[in-house]
């Protein structure tokens, strides 16, 4: 028995080490937020005779000019959302005050739900510091990029956006509960699929986060689905998108017109 148990422990350890190695490989191959690139680079990522994807990429090129890749670590939606919005506001500075009050509103609501103020304030302060830096004329786009490439700061943003998403889902449990396949409660869904890092975002996450912060996002879907054009879906429905993301199965990147 003892030998068996230590064998299990050893295998567990091996698995963890392997996960570590894979994560390192992913990290080395792509920054959290990449540089702006031409959409053409996608053409080379797929086989020339892959008609569906090549047709969809051509269609994408008609609608968008540039692309910024994000690291595929399961946090890509949250990171892309945070960066793309703040980058846009770095130029425009039109929505930041509203955004800031929405974030503050989310914090109050999370505190009233019983989230520990100890960790919550930590995330909140870090995030607000970044938002405020975007509001300053002296902050450059290179600095914002640097912030989102810094593991600690970048992950703090992701974490806070995850908790905000979770809080919104829980406050709107009645509406969202019908979408939770396989989970008995919203709370259970949130603690398994939303709050932990590296868990991929789904429609539910996107819907909740965009509603919670009042930031409209257009998601352009490029998959093996029907047709030779890419389809854009806007969250919340009917709004005017402030930022655009490209979705390919399991991954989100940032798009620019």
């Amino acid at each position: 028995m003892a030998d068996f148990m230590s064998e299990v422990a050893r295998l567990d350890e091996e698995t963890l080490k392997q996960i570590d190695r894979i994560q390192k490989e992913v990290a080395e191959s792509c920054e959290f937020i990449g540089d702006q690139e031409d959409i053409d680079i996608l053409t080379k990522q797929y086989l020339q005779d892959d008609e569906v994807y090549q047709a969809k990429i051509s269609d994408l090129k008609r609608k968008y000019k540039k692309l910024r890749r994000t690291r595929g670590d399961g946090n890509c939606f949250f990171r892309a959302f945070g960066y793309a919005y703040l980058e846009k506001q770095l130029e425009e500075k039109t929505d930041l005050d509203r955004f800031k009050s929405a974030v503050i509103q989310c914090r109050s609501s999370l505190l009233s739900m019983g989230y520990p103020s100890f960790t919550l304030e930590d995330f909140h302060d870090t995030f607000i510091d970044i938002v405020e830096s975007v509001n300053k004329a002296s902050t450059s786009s290179a600095e914002l990029l640097q912030t989102f490439r810094d593991q600690g700061l970048s992950d703090y943003c992701v974490c806070y956006l995850r908790i905000i998403t979770s809080g919104y889902l829980q406050s709107n449990a009645e509406f969202y509960s019908s979408f939770m396949d396989g989970y008995s409660t919203i709370k259970e869904y949130c603690s398994t699929e939303v709050e932990p890092m590296y868990k991929e975002a789904d429609h539910i996450h996107i819907s909740a986060l965009t509603s919670a912060l009042g930031v409209s996002v257009g998601v352009v879907y490029m998959d093996r689905g029907e047709g030779l054009e890419v389809n854009e879906h806007v969250f919340p429905e009917g709004s005017d998108p402030m930022i655009h993301l490209l979705y390919r199965p399991g991954h989100y990147d940032i798009l620019y017109k």
């Binding site: 520990p116 919550l120 995330f123 992950d155 974490c159 908790i163 603690s191 709050e195 932990p196």
Partner: peptide, 9 residues
């Protein structure tokens, strides 16, 4: 394990 969240301590 899989339900860890950074808001925990």
């Amino acid at each position: 394990k899989d339900q860890w969240a950074a808001a925990m301590t």
